[in-house]
Computed example of a mutant assay.
Amino acid sequence: MAQSVHFSTPVDTVVSRMRALDTALPERDGLAVFNRVYLTVTEEFDRQLDAGLFPDRRAAISLDVRFAERYLTVAEDGRAPACWRPLLQFRRHPGVRPLQFALSGINAHIGHDLALALVDTCRTLGCEPADLEDEFDRVGDLLVSLEERVREELMPGPDLFQIADPLTHLLGSWSLERAREATWAAARALWALRGLPDLAEEFADRLDSAVGLAGRMLLTPLPI
């Protein structure tokens, strides 16, 4: 039986950088929690890419790498937009649960970074957001399936019901599906505003602040 051949891509470089962060960061660090989640997503993306599940391979790689670079800039260089600052501020807080760290990172990355990465990719490839909708949806589907698994793995067990109860209420206020929908709308708006740079910058700043506010709420410390 013929074996599939893996050709190195920029996605492999992204995976290597995330693995290096996984080794370097303390296990209980809030950013490390998110990094493990994102590493799993990116490894799965890489497998699907090798399996030919992305019809437009070039567009899929371009979007994925630009998306990842926005997180890696935060993790490696510490240059953080407003949406990432709550996670960096609370990353070692003993009253914040691993699931909160994971979802706060997903919120920042999907709610803000993905919209800007989509616009960047459109500029690079000379296309419209609608031309990348399939790639956007496939990445989103990967994240939805992972979010379900993350909730199952990181949610406290029944013996911690007193802790899980407020956690359940807190995290029930955020939905990845709604965040995806808002991100798609934001990317289309930013693309429509590309000829008005001052207005586009203001819109992006407001998006960054709003996503940061949601991330701060997700990181509300709970009783230990």
Score class of each variant (00 low, 15 high):
D56V: 00
A24W: 11
E177K: 10
E128K: 11
L31F: 11
L88Y: 02
S175E: 04
R79V: 13
H112C: 08
R188T: 10
D134E: 15
E181D: 14
T23M: 13
A115R: 02
T40I: 03
L193E: 09
R178Y: 04
P94M: 11
T121V: 03
C127G: 01
P223W: 08
E153Q: 15
F34N: 04
L99P: 00
A204P: 01
V139K: 08
R79M: 09
H109Y: 04
S104F: 01
A187E: 02
G111P: 00
F54P: 01
A102Q: 06
P98M: 13
L171H: 04
L21P: 04
N35G: 03
R17V: 09
V15K: 03
T40L: 08
F34A: 08
V37T: 13
F54Y: 15
L146S: 09
Y38V: 03
D131T: 09
Q3S: 11
E135N: 03
E133P: 00
A115C: 04
E135D: 10
L39T: 13
R58T: 15
E153W: 13
A68I: 05
G172A: 05
S104I: 01
V139Y: 05
D134V: 05
L132D: 03
L39K: 05
D22G: 09
V15D: 06
Q3P: 01
R216K: 12
V5G: 04
E27H: 15
H112S: 06
V74I: 11
T220R: 08
V65D: 07
L167S: 09
D134W: 09
C127N: 00
S104R: 03
